[in-house]
Design a protein around this nucleic acid. Structure first.
Length: 604
RNA sequence: GGGGGCGUAGCUCAAUUGGUUAGAGCGCUGCCCUGUCACGGCAGAGGUUACGGGUUCGAGCCCCGCCGCUCCCGCCA
């Protein structure tokens, strides 16, 4: 070994030992006579001292010439720092290594951005960080994220093993099953004109594994979706993928609660309280206007449909007459909202097809609002009571069909919470995690444009047993055995109990979803066939691993917990991918390009 | 596909709203400095204001286009 200790190891107990440290030059303080060099490695940093009275001139000059991030090996004696020079900011701050030898293992050019200053480095343009990702990852903050990710992956594997699960790898060269997310395609050289698809998830394989009698499967699986990116979405991402046989929903809830308790304990030393709360899809929409509610704060939606059914304010009563609802939220203390903020909220509402956004500012004892003149006394009294209106409040209304009205206010609720947080009026402790299960989703949703039903989750989701009889007669009222796990307004994962009966699965494909039998056969024939030979009842779930790590690390972008992420346009700035390929490669793959060429590489 | 934000020195930002030679801190280079840890001091180098057009006597600033990064909508069974 080139070193005897790592850079976060030496303490006063090591006094007098001759040690060797290896690492990067974190910072150098040249006082002319004496030089201090902090050596940093993965574990931490240690101060080394170069004193000219103890050293050959040449060695001292070499130390003086070192730049940030040069790679060195320093040998010397551990000594306790002189009184008054202890650095309490670092764990090794009581000691230093009096260098007797210096080996420069590699010199470093001047860096494109600093890695030693967390203040500056965290503000550096992400473009630059991605291009020089290896430098970005040297920063202790980023190294911490990767380390936490690794620890959680290990804890997950250990927990799942203890619960009797087998980790089984499934193919990444899969078959195109164009349902749901757009797929990445991989042309086949050996089979001209044919393509693999990268899996959006191992969904079908894990169900087949249940038919195969594995009973308990899990995988920390890479998944691929060719959709537009977001702060929490990458084209390739990682799921903790799980499937079990002979179970009900309750078994999944218990398993995942156990897993998350273990993970939170491992990563943050936090004891989560289980069982988690459960909320139905309807209630989530009614109270929070979203199917992944952030319950760390109130501002819940309140229904005023009955109060405005006979109102003289036609905008509201008319909506009710058309089968719609009237809902409102009280953004406590936000009467100070600027016109710009109100405009932004109105735009949100309009984005959902609303004509505008009705509001009341409660300021100076007055209700300031363009619509309040239309309200009767009874209506005002009801608002005051049900919304607990006080001075300084901002009331916002949505009148629309139920789902739309809920979703409008759901978005506005989050927007208002963001403003209140920035104003310091809403404070949420960083270590608060509101977990909940969202259940009783509708199995099907209706696509007006295509005039057909589609699966809210995916077509393998089993209906709730007592609703199954309505599949053909009243699809709308059928609830799915689907569940989402949500924390702090983030969808961490979801899953369902699957259909294990071939006939029911065929009915869903062909009669409910109206997929032609030939197409069903083409896409899912092998699954239906597998189900002929004894498929056990089964169900599962997938957790977004990147999102989970981001939450644990307290970052809003999953790019901060992925070693080599892609940009919003799906490119890698470090390797400059995707890139053009040679005509030879294309010929092998039986592919001809129609897109105009950009910087074709030299023929290989 | 649509909308918003950003792009000025290696990095982070400024430039009095269209007016002299585009500045500061950090970093870098050189010199000085024996207890620093954001070391300190002195001096210096460093700019096609992303790129391409246009308006103007004059553009970092206004207009058009384009590229890149980012956030959101659509999309993500």
């Amino acid at each position: 070994m080139k070193r005897t200790h790592h850079c976060n190891e030496l303490r006063p107990e090591n006094l007098g030992q001759t040690v060797s440290l290896t690492g990067w030059v974190h910072s150098r303080r040249d006082l002319g006579g004496v030089i201090f060099i902090d050596i940093r490695d993965r574990e931490g940093r240690t101060q080394t001292v170069f004193d000219p009275s103890d050293l050959p001139r040449e060695l001292f000059d070499q130390a003086a010439a070192l730049r940030s991030e040069c790679v060195v090996r320093v040998t010397g004696q551990v000594r306790v720092r002189p009184a008054g020079t202890v650095n309490s900011k670092i764990p090794t701050g009581e000691i230093e290594v009096a260098a007797s030898n210096l080996e420069v293992l590699n010199i470093a050019d001047v860096l494109p951005f600093p890695v030693d200053d967390p203040e500056v480095a965290s503000k550096v343009n992400e473009e630059l960080r991605l291009k020089y990702r290896y430098l970005d990852l040297r920063r202790p903050e980023m190294a911490r994220n990767l380390r936490l990710r690794s620890k959680v992956a290990t804890a997950t594997r250990f927990f799942m093993d203890q619960q009797g699960f087998l980790e089984v790898e499934t193919p990444t060269l899969f078959k195109s099953t164009p349902e749901g997310a757009r797929e990445f395609l991989v042309p086949s050289r050996i089979n001209p004109g044919q393509f693999y698809a990268l899996p959006q998830s191992p969904q079908q394989f894990k169900q087949i594994l249940m038919v195969a009698g594995i009973e308990r499967y899990f995988q920390i699986a890479r998944c691929y979706r060719d959709e537009d990116l977001r702060a929490d979405r990458q084209p390739e991402f990682t799921q903790v993928d799980i499937e079990m046989s002979f179970i009900d929903r309750e078994d999944i809830y218990a398993l995942i609660e156990g897993l998350l308790k273990t993970v939170w304990k491992t990563a943050l030393n936090i004891d989560l309280q289980a069982p988690f709360k459960r909320i139905s899809f309807d209630e989530a929409l009614n109270r929070y206007g979203i199917d992944k509610p952030d319950t760390r704060f109130g501002m819940e939606l309140v229904d005023f449909t009955e109060e405005f059914r006979t109102s003289t304010f036609k905008v509201f009563s008319g909506t009710v007459a058309n089968g719609g609802v009237v809902k409102a939220i009280n953004a406590k203390g936000l009467a100070c909202a600027t016109q710009g903020q109100l405009d932004a909220m109105t735009e949100t509402a309009k984005g959902f097809g609303a004509k505008g956004l009705a509001f009341i500012k409660v300021e100076g004892g007055d209700w300031k609002s363009p619509i309040v003149k239309f309200f009767g006394e009874a209506e005002k009294a009801a608002l005051t009571k049900k919304l607990a209106i006080e001075e300084g409040d901002l009331i916002l209304f949505a009148a629309d069909q139920w789902l739309n009205a809920c979703e409008i206010l759901g978005k506005i609720r989050l927007y208002c919470a963001e403003i209140l947080k920035n104003q310091g009026k809403l404070v949420i402790p960083a270590n608060r995690f509101d977990f909940l299960w969202v259940i009783d989703f509708p199995l099907l949703s209706f696509d007006k444009e295509q005039n057909r039903w589609y699966s809210s989750h995916h077509p393998f989701t089993a209906p709730v047993e007592e609703d199954a009889g309505f599949l053909k007669t009243d699809p709308k009222r059928v609830r799915g055995q689907h569940y989402d796990i949500v924390v702090n307004g983030v969808e961490l994962g979801g899953g369902s109990i699957r259909i294990h009966n071939r006939e029911l699965q065929k009915t869903v494909f062909e009669e409910v979803l109206q997929i032609p039998p030939e197409e069903t056969q083409l896409r899912f024939g092998y699954m239906l066939e597998a189900f002929k030979y004894g498929a056990p009842p089964h169900g599962g779930i997938a957790l977004g691993f990147d999102r989970m790590i981001a939450i644990l690390c307290g970052t809003s972008s999953i790019r901060d917990v992925i070693a080599f992420p892609k940009t919003a346009k799906g490119t890698c700035l470090m390797t400059d991918s995707p890139s053009a390929v040679s005509p030879r490669q294309l010929r092998d793959l039986h592919i001809e390009l129609k897109a105009k060429k950009e910087n074709p590489p030299a023929a290989v």
